[in-house]
Amino acid sequence: MKAFRYHRPANVAEAVAVLAAEPQAAYLGGGTNLVDLMKLGVQRPDVLVDVTRLPLDTVEELPDGGLRIGATVRNSDLAAHPVVRRAYPVLARALLAAASGQLRNMATTGGNLLQRTRCVYFQDTGKACNKREPGSGCAALHGQNRDLAVLDWSEQCVATHPSDLAVALAALDTVVEVHEADGPRDIPIAEFYRSPGTHPERETTVARGALITAVRLPPLPAARRSTYLKVRDRASFAFAAGSVAAVLDLDGDVVRDVRLAYGAVAHRPWRAYRAEEALRGRPFSPELAARAADAELAEARPLRHNGFKLPLTRAITVRALTELASS
C-alpha cells in the first residue's frame, strides 16, 4: 500500500490547517473504514491526521435540553451514555445495531457519518466506479445491485450510505458542527449529505478539509418514544437490508408529531418527509403507517436485484410505528 505520513495535531485549528495545506491528507478517526480502503487502494492519502487525541470526546448536556456529542466519542461509549439511552433511544439502538462490538469500540461519531459506501464496485479498483474514479462509469447500475439504492440514485451512482447512526441522527434533526479553514459552521444534517447526481464523488456539502467537531441534538422530548429497526441478511454484524429510525408523538391516538428516516435506500440517510406528512394530524393505525410508507416510496425506482427493499421498508415502517404507538 502507499506509504503515508502520520500527524497528530495539537488542536482543531492545526488539524484543519494540515488538511488545507496537504491536498492528499485525510483525517483518521477509528480507522475502521479508512484503513481498509487504504489497503485496497481505494483511498490513497499522503498524510493521516489523527484526530482521536483532540478534546472532542465528550457528551455534553446543553442548557436548552439538547445534547452535544463530540466527534471522537466512540460508538460504544455513545450507545451506553445514560442520557442517550433515556432521551434518544433511537440513537442508542441504531449504534448497537451496527457492526460488531470490536468495531464500535473503535469507530467515532464523526467518522461514522463520513464512512464510505460498501458498494462492491466502489471497493474494487478493478471495476468501474464514478465515486472512486469520476468518469469511469457505474458498474453497479447494471451489475450486482441488491444492496444498493432505490431512491434518488443517478445514472452515475446507485450507492447507499452505510451508516445506521446517520439514519437516527437524520430523524432527530441533528446539527453537524464542522470546522472549516475559515472557522466553525453549523449545518443541519438534512443539508449535510448530497444526492449522487452527476458528482457522486462529492458526498457532503462541506468543503474538503472540513473537520466534524461535534453533532448537536436539539431538544426533542418526543424522542423518548423512539426506536430504530434494522433488518439484516444475518442476525448480527451486517449492513442493513433495510432500516428505519422513528420518533412518534401521539395526542390520544392522533399523531401530533413524527420523525422517520430510512437507511439502505439512498445515497444519504433518507428523511421520510412525505411519510411524516401523511401521518401527522391523523389517528394512528398500522394501515395509515403503510399508506405513509407507500407515499414515501412512490417515487422509488428499484434496480434489478433490490425491489424487495420497497415491501421491506414498508413493513418495518409499520412495525416501528405500531410498536411506538402501543408502547
Partner: peptide, 20 residues
Amino acid sequence: RYGDWVNHDLATYHITGCAD
C-alpha cells in the same frame, strides 16, 4: 461482465454468525 465474484470479502459474502 467482469467474470468474477464481486462480493469477495467477509462483509459482503455473509457467513453465519452465532446470533443466527
